[in-house]
Computed example of a mutant assay.
Amino acid sequence: MLEIDEISKTIGTKTVLDRITLSISSGASLAIVGESGSGKSTLARIVMALERPTSGVIRFNGIAAPHKKTSDFKDWYRQIQFVFQNTTASLDPRMTIAQSLEEPLTGFTGMGKNERKERIAEYAEKVGLPPHLLAERPGRLSGGQYQRACIAKALVVKPKLLICDEIVSNLDLLHQHQIIELLHTLKIEQQLSLLFITHDLSLLAGLCEEIAVLKEGQLVERFASSAIHASGHHPYTQSLLNAARSLGRRASE
């Protein structure tokens, strides 16, 4: 489904991404893990066609990512949706939650008003957002509720691939795990492919089948999530695992 083929990105003299090759099949999930500055968010923006690579190509179902804002962009964004790290920029503070969820339906589908209303109610229920909050503006929502609304907005058009960029990093541990469980459920229900970007390996148990580790723009390792606790990982991967275990111990104390 998604092919990331020899993607490189150079900004000035700095190599942000160096010949990254990855793929995600239909209904599968891949986590991209690394510290800040590893290039993982840049790679996500390139997949979304929000940035252009210096070299290489992104393909989705065999079609290359569009480079100009034509009708191809609309189809690309209809199939690939994104939940940003900075969720406060995702919902217009002047709109109600219902209006924000209706916006992509108006832009990407030919649904009538009643159909849109039904779809909004359906996805509010799917993400666990109480119906009365649809009439509220984003500022009235808690962090967890806001994130659920962002996920609903991304999924309401029924994309094939969802990209999540550090979407739980600003939440406490309880809400982090609630959102992870929600994504796992929605992935199965909608046969959704998932590209999950994080610096925290402890979040990935049961969510992603595979893990790719980036360090300073280079792919240092890719492995099945079932092998996360196996021996023989790259030293950088092992340092991330050790950090996740240390944080987990502190949280449980």
Rank of each mutant, 00 (worst) to 15 (best):
E216G: 07
A135L: 13
H177L: 02
K126Y: 14
Q176D: 00
L161Q: 12
H175R: 03
S193M: 02
L173F: 06
L171W: 05
T237N: 15
P130A: 05
V168T: 09
C208M: 03
A224Q: 13
S226M: 10
A224F: 06
L162H: 10
L133R: 11
L214V: 02
I179N: 12
H175N: 11
F196T: 02
L182I: 09
Q190I: 10
L162A: 05
K160H: 12
L134T: 12
H233S: 10
L195S: 06
P235G: 11
I228Q: 12
E181T: 08
L161Y: 10
L141P: 14
C164G: 03
L183G: 00
S202T: 01
D165K: 08
G232K: 06
E209T: 09
L171T: 07
K215M: 09
R140F: 06
T185L: 12
H184D: 04
E210H: 15
I151V: 14
F223D: 03
L134Q: 07
L207Q: 01
A230C: 09
H234P: 02
S142C: 06
K160N: 14
L186V: 01
E189P: 12
Q191M: 11
G206N: 07
H177Y: 09
I188L: 15
D172S: 02
Q238G: 09
C208I: 01
H234T: 02
E209R: 06
F223T: 03
G143Q: 02
D165S: 08
E181G: 05
K158E: 10
V213F: 02
S225E: 13
L171C: 03
A205F: 01
A135Q: 15
Y236R: 04
G139K: 13
I180E: 00
G143C: 01
A154V: 04
L186I: 03
I167T: 13
L155Q: 10
H132N: 10
K187Y: 00
L134E: 10
S169D: 00
I179H: 11
L201G: 04
L182M: 12
Y146E: 08
G206I: 08
Q176M: 01
I167H: 03
C164V: 00
I163R: 13
I167R: 08
E189M: 10
L141C: 09
E221P: 08
A152V: 10
L192S: 10
G206F: 04
L203Y: 04
H175D: 00
P138S: 07
E189A: 15
